[in-house]
Design a protein around this nucleic acid. Structure first.
Lengths: 185, 185
DNA sequence: GTCTATACGATGATAGAC
DNA sequence: GTCTATCATCGTATAGAC
């Protein structure tokens, strides 16, 4: 296995998706052209197509990355000895929102309404995040409020659902709040 | 003033936006071509451009219509003698969500992140709807819970904010839930 | 693997007849 | 006002040299 080669490959892919994400944040998923991404990344079109089958493939990888990033923060909370209460949990999530990621995230929602591949990614990530919230809230009920584990899991569900909803609304708010930085053009 | 002529003109415009909205619901704001709309409306490209300056103009009009439709339902609740409580209010709003409108609504969110004109429309409609929710909740606090009007308006604000957030999350959920109907293609 | 140059298709928009 | 036919532009993706 050429492990080092694979690592370099992944590094290039990351470099490309990062440039793509900046473009998406400015111009949107669809109005970003390959030319935009070549300009932003410093690479050429040929190079990009050597790492991604087509533009759809690149968009999917980028979307996955943005959404995964958002979910990452949560995992540690559930394992904590003193998990945050729901209000605190929502506050921390809200505070961690990055404006560019918020814009791209909301763009993926819009794209998901008509693009099955993107919908799959969004639904999967949303479900995953809700499950992690559920774990967080359960941990709080058990460790801080001293509920019985079984009952805790049950009563945590609607709370997690609400935290998720409020978080999504906040993400939308952030995305609409901050206008994308102007391109030099 | 040729009032009748104006009415006919508005009728045509409505016919076009309705066809456009069906296309948007299926294929999204950007992946809908003028050709798609001519096929869906039965009109020709020339006819469409006689009523709209360009595609952006058509998208804006359609977006405005979808969002206005959603706000319309609310106005009557605030005036009611027995305004619904917040939970009931949210339930009614949720029940009134149309799948196609939900998809197009979420698409406008995505578009709003990078398109100033659309952002203006979305923010305006969101603010307007939040204000109407505020009126509804205030009316409920005053007429049903018998709060004092001044205090009611104050305490209604955070409640309205939360109802709005939960409604938006529900809209997103609906938009992701229902796949667009297949095109005959 | 990365570049430059280019082919090809799609789409927004217009011209001009009726 | 509506049509058909057409143009010009832009953007994806590829070919082929290095």
């Amino acid at each position: 296995m050429p492990r080092l080669t694979d690592a370099r490959k992944e590094l290039r892919r990351a470099q490309i998706t990062e440039a793509a994400l900046r473009c998406f944040g400015r111009n949107g998923l669809e109005r970003t052209s390959i030319a935009d991404i070549t300009a932003e990344s410093g690479l050429s079109a040929g190079s990009i197509y050597a790492h991604y089958r087509d533009k759809a493939d690149l968009v999917q990888s980028s979307a996955r990355e943005v959404l995964a990033e958002r979910a990452k923060v949560l995992s540690e909370y559930a394992a904590s000895d003193t998990p945050p209460d729901p209000d605190d949990l929502l506050g921390r999530l809200t505070a961690a929102i990055d404006p560019v990621a918020a814009r791209v995230g909301v763009q993926t929602w819009g794209e998901a309404t008509t693009n099955p591949a993107i919908r799959g990614i969004v639904v999967d990530m949303t479900d995953r995040m809700r499950a992690m919230l559920h774990d967080c809230v359960t941990a709080w009920l058990v460790k801080v409020e001293h509920h019985e584990p079984d009952r805790a899991r049950e009563s945590a569900a609607p709370i997690a659902h609400r935290v998720m909803a409020l978080y999504q609304a906040q993400l939308l708010y952030t995305a609409l709040q901050s206008p994308p930085e102007e391109t030099a053009s």
